[in-house]
Design a protein around this nucleic acid. Structure first.
Lengths: 197, 197
DNA sequence: ACCTGAACACCGTTCAAGT
DNA sequence: ACCTGAACACCGTTCAAGT
């Protein structure tokens, strides 16, 4: 709320990202326009070009911010001393909650638009988001709670399942409350298998 | 290859869809422009408007076509008389193969852009794609091969996992050959669980 | 019924010039 | 270093008019 806008915005980059995420949440990725962002912030339409080389660069930065928050949420929800079942349930709940609260952002994060050769930061963030699950599996194996085998491979069974639940929930195939309510059941089936005991 | 283009194209709608899918595959969804499509086909830029009320309608039609092909692939790969493990492996292989061969299209199919209230045809197609999995689970339950319980709920464990594998493979997180090679292992873990026996 | 051509209101991106 | 204003080459969509 500064009187008589100064020539320099001060922190245009942050302002652009914040405004972009609001638009993303309210009107979807298709409605994101650099010119409209600039208009909303009260800056010339060419100004964003100083901070993002093109629109894709802004989308990449948005996705990177999303992974940062997702990774923080996963880390916060991790229960390193818990046994497999409550631990994966907690991680899954954090992931699904993030998916529900940030559906459009998650779609952007998943999208193939980000060239990993160009944006290695993003590739690192994606890998980091898998880390919580790899750690969970490795710990559980060390304790003899789950089967042996390449942790990355075993992780896939858990991570792909939760990724799928998150994607299906965020894109509307599944109801958020149903998905969250079914998580305990899900973890149980994952651990004990579909085969009757 | 008609000499001296006639005034009427003949089957502009199909031509637009075919050209759009080629662009989608070669240059991605972001590069899709109705005007460029019209130019490639050799028709005025306003002509597409006769067949699709707006760009989103063309994207919806593209996604619908994708689900048709996916559903045909799943039906063809289904082995109604097989036991659970080979049957789900076959379905998963078909799904992943489709995901690898149609990565950009799959992203479009998954996207939240399609309003189900407006395009109920698409919602039906999505549900149909889950049908193969629901049938598989229901049959296996009837034979006592897998645990009892709401088929839709149990299906989720299998469908979400495969959906996740497909998404992660199509967006580059997973290598296609590794995913396909790990499918038997995946199906085994799904059936027997992560817990050591 | 199907398509054209012009028109309208937007875009993203670039670049000399301003502060 | 950061931003502006004009310019360029694009868009999607609409609508009278043509075939």
């Amino acid at each position: 709320m500064s009187q008589s806008r100064p020539y320099h915005h001060g922190d245009l980059r942050s302002a652009l990202l914040a405004s972009a995420e609001r638009t993303l949440r309210e009107k979807g990725a298709a409605a994101l326009s650099l010119r409209e962002l600039a208009r909303d912030i009260g800056v010339s339409h060419a100004a964003p070009g100083r901070h993002f080389k093109d629109k894709q660069a802004l989308l990449d930065a948005l996705a990177l911010g999303g992974y940062d928050r997702l990774n923080r949420a996963l880390t916060a929800a991790d229960l390193p001393d818990a046994t497999f079942e409550p631990r994966i349930t907690s991680l899954a709940r954090a992931y699904i909650t993030f998916a529900v609260d940030n559906a459009e952002l998650l779609e952007l994060m998943y999208s193939r638009k980000h060239d990993p050769d160009i944006d290695s930061e993003l590739a690192d963030a994606v890998e980091l988001s898998l880390c919580s699950f790899v750690n969970l599996i490795a710990d559980a194996q060390r304790r003899g709670e789950i089967v042996e085998g390449d942790p990355e491979r075993v992780t896939l069974v858990a991570a792909a399942g939760i990724h799928g639940l998150a994607a299906m929930t965020s894109n509307g195939t599944l109801q958020p409350d149903e998905t969250l309510a079914g998580l305990d059941h899900y973890a149980h089936l994952l651990l004990h298998g579909l085969k009757p005991r």
